[in-house]
Design a protein around this nucleic acid. Structure first.
Length: 302
DNA sequence: GCGTCCAGGTCTACC
DNA sequence: GGTAGACCTGGACGC
């Protein structure tokens, strides 16, 4: 059954720029169909029901959001799916202050004009954290492989044959041996296992991060308490929470910054920090949009 | 075909 | 608090 969802889109929303905001759109269970400009995502409603969301044009400001389920979803389930559909696009994020700030600087005024900055998120923060751990110390192609194997091994099949991201419980019941030998997570295996077990047991309320209004410093510290989450991962997870106080530099960002601002010669992190420091609580987002600016002018790499 | 390097880093031990 | 060394994997590259 197909149900049309009608989330409330902020006035500055831009569908394509949100979908391609970073690499998440290229990681299962997200699926991109470039020809029809459709983003699909198979997910659980949080109450055991599986469905597939399809976001598509015709409008960049108000895309169509359709939910496909086996049978008719209850009103409760529909509300849960609708909340997750909005969460994925981070529709409750208010970027007006951010756009006002970047308009003050001619180098970055394009950010407001293009309505960029809203970042695609997984249906749950648990999925965001696991995927972020899988991006560490490896190539992007290896991240894609590990994520795909994790879903194949523990994911839940939907009506359309797609598979949604594993529940924490499914991974928690597994073992480090399986995560190493079957999913081939390498040294990341114990990190993902411990995270899944803490979440499954209730010791860690990972989804509470999405409602947290604590200072960024505190959230960063709490995220770093998760094994396998260091400064890079914590900083970039904060961006998915709408907090941009940290740059979250990785080797790709450093190389891109050097290419754009220093003729390709490497630049110390302290200098990169200094470059974006005037943007204060927005500096992490300005940095990310600066190093990915070509994506919006030329072609998205996903 | 084989060895080496390194990629969207993090942890631990040690100072 | 700062730093060196170990850590899985797989693709790219040189030979």
């Amino acid at each position: 059954m197909i149900t049309e969802l009608r989330p409330r889109f902020p006035a500055d929303f831009h569908f394509e720029h949100t979908v391609y905001s970073h690499g998440w759109c290229a990681l299962f269970p997200f699926r991109l169909d470039r020809a029809s400009q459709t983003l699909s995502c198979t997910l659980e409603d949080g109450n055991g029901r599986i469905g597939t969301l399809r976001y598509s044009l015709p409008s960049q400001k108000k895309p169509r959001v359709a939910l496909e389920t086996r049978g008719t979803p209850s009103s409760t389930s529909l509300a849960l799916f609708a909340a997750r559909a909005a969460n994925i696009l981070h529709l409750n994020l208010d970027l007006r202050m951010f756009y006002a700030r970047v308009r003050e600087d001619a180098r970055f005024a394009w950010i407001a004009e293009h309505r960029t900055g809203r970042m695609l998120r997984a249906p749950t923060f648990f999925e965001d954290v696991v995927k972020m751990i899988l991006t560490t110390n490896c190539s992007w192609s290896l991240t894609e492989l590990m994520n795909e194997r994790l879903i194949q091994q523990f994911g839940i099949p939907a009506a359309d044959g797609a598979v949604c991201f594993p529940r924490p419980e499914s991974i928690a019941e597994s073992s480090e041996e399986i995560l190493r030998s079957e999913v081939r997570l390498g040294y990341r295996a114990p990190f993902v296992l411990e995270l899944a077990r803490r979440v499954a047991s209730g010791a860690l309320d990972i989804e509470a991060f999405r409602q947290a209004d604590a200072p960024a410093l505190e959230l960063h510290r709490a995220l770093r308490d998760i094994k396998g989450v260091g400064d890079y991962a914590a900083s970039n997870l904060l961006k998915l929470l709408g907090r941009y106080d940290y740059l979250g530099l990785d080797s790709w960002c450093r190389a891109k910054f050097a290419e754009l601002h220093n003729g390709g010669t490497p630049v110390p992190d302290t200098e990169i920090e200094g470059y974006y420091a005037p943007f204060e609580e927005w500096k992490g987002l300005v940095m990310w949009l600066d190093v990915t600016r070509q994506w919006y002018a030329l072609k998205f790499p996903f």
